[in-house]
Measured scan of single mutants.
Amino acid sequence: MASQGTKRSYEQMETDGERQNATEIRASVGKMIDGIGRFYIQMCTELKLSDYEGRLIQNSLTIERMVLSAFDERRNKYLEEHPSAGKDPKKTGGPIYKRVDRKWMRELVLYDKEEIRRIWRQANNGDDATAGLTHMMIWHSNLNDTTYQRTRALVRTGMDPRMCSLMQGSTLPRRSGAAGAAVKGVGTMVMELIRMIKRGINDRNFWRGENGRKTRSAYERMCNILKGKFQTAAQRAMMDQVRESRNPGNAEIEDLIFLARSALILRGSVAHKSCLPACVYGPAVASGYDFEKEGYSLVGIDPFKLLQNSQVYSLIRPNENPAHKSQLVWMACNSAAFEDLRVLSFIRGTKVSPRGKLSTRGVQIASNENMDAMESSTLELRSRYWAIRTRSGGNTNQQRASAGQISVQPAFSVQRNLPFDKPTIMAAFTGNTEGRTSDMRAEIIRMMEGAKPEEMSFQGRGVFELSDERAANPIVPSFDMSNEGSYFFGDNAEEYDN
């Protein structure tokens, strides 16, 4: 993207840094990872977990959730003011799984939030270390993106479920800051804005008074975040219109849905970061690795190297396929839920299948599930090659597409044709070009129609051997075009429920 120079890199967003050079960025990201790792080690000690239990991804998720809940100030305040039966607002906890007599047992633990905050700050040299908290939120978000298709949420806001490739980060909490905003897809931002506008339509006082002023500035800020994701002048001009509207209503909703559809071809720039579970960072720190000293990046080879040398386990339900569970977590670790499966298959070195073909449910185990038949197995999170994460949407291309997802959002900077089903997408653009945004709409449609099938995206960008740390010898991959490109292809993934 041309304006790259004016933006802070995501590592800076990730670490609240002012302008830093590459070495400083690597050190501050490393410091953040160190903090998460030290916190995780301490929690495993508190909970008396064995090494194996500490490497269980379900335990990692519970521990991450506990610290996120302990620092969720708004919710904590709300819980104190609106006490609900049987919930102690000062405590947080969740299921911890232990191996007892050759069987997995679930144990519900409860801790004072104050105590968890103390352990977290102690692991982070006394700081609140917001960057580390956001990092864990993005890992949870990436896992949700890989596990669930947001059909219901899309339909509720009037969008087409086939636009799911635009929904990265749709389950990120509001408090995820600049680093969170960077990884949100165009569809996620559109959905947040539509929800806001709908509230304004239904509630006369939404934009009024002292609160209304705050609401208005939040609305304009979200519009600017979305505008910054678009790469064409016409899309940005249309966002200006939406932002400046005196009284946002149905016309703005129409414009936003139009823009979301246009992003299936004229893709937005959305950041991709490899955020790993805390149970990967903990053992690495415990083994003596100093992330701050060595430096770390979320968008280069580092996460690949770390996963190459990590042992992570997962509980497996009786009829689940461990290899499929591994694929789910591998995609989440690489922030690749909406990437082209052919690119992923090449990088991973084994075939990556669409969601609907995987015999696996989510990673988390519900409290009512029976533990008797639970097994555990090693997650295979290694890769054959590594590639640089991208934040450009890439230019655009036609490809055989599917009944489910009709476009992709690249996660890796790797040369390819970008699949999208042009006739299906263009069919949504018939007729409606009147109104105050008509010239911009016409211009956007013209650009979409001009998108050429034979153009290559990320020209000359390749993948790298894991021994090639400096990215000196790019390998331009070859793809098996007979395979499906979309992950949520004609899909039956479970729906995400809060």
Score class of each variant (00 low, 15 high):
T6S: 00
S9M: 14
Y10C: 03
D16C: 04
E18H: 13
A22I: 03
V29M: 11
Y40H: 15
E53Q: 12
Q58V: 06
T62W: 04
L68D: 04
R75D: 10
N76V: 04
K77Y: 00
E81P: 02
H82P: 00
R102V: 02
W104P: 04
M105D: 12
V109Y: 02
K113L: 08
R117H: 10
R118T: 11
T134W: 04
H135D: 05
I138H: 02
S141D: 10
R150D: 09
R150N: 02
V155W: 02
T157C: 13
D160F: 06
L166F: 01
R175T: 04
S176N: 01
G180M: 09
E192C: 06
L193A: 11
L193G: 12
R195M: 05
I201N: 04
I201H: 01
N202K: 11
N202Q: 12
F206L: 11
W207R: 09
N211H: 00
N224K: 15
I225Y: 08
A234D: 15
A234K: 05
A237F: 01
Q241A: 08
V242E: 10
V242S: 07
N250W: 09
A263W: 05
I265F: 00
G268Y: 01
S269N: 07
V270I: 13
K273D: 02
V280E: 05
E292R: 11
E294H: 13
L306S: 11
P322H: 06
S326K: 07
W330V: 11
A336N: 14
F338Y: 04
E339M: 08
D340F: 10
R342E: 07
V343S: 13
L344D: 07
F346Y: 03
R348V: 06
K351V: 07
V352W: 06
L358Q: 04
Q364T: 15
N368E: 14
N370H: 14
M371V: 15
D372N: 14
A373D: 02
W386T: 07
R389Q: 01
Q398K: 15
A403S: 14
F412Y: 13
N417R: 15
P419K: 12
P423D: 08
I425R: 00
M426T: 14
T430H: 01
G435V: 05
G450K: 00
A451C: 02
K452C: 03
K452E: 04
E455V: 11
F464H: 15
F464Y: 00
N473W: 12
F488G: 06
G490P: 01
Y496E: 02
D497R: 00
N498T: 13
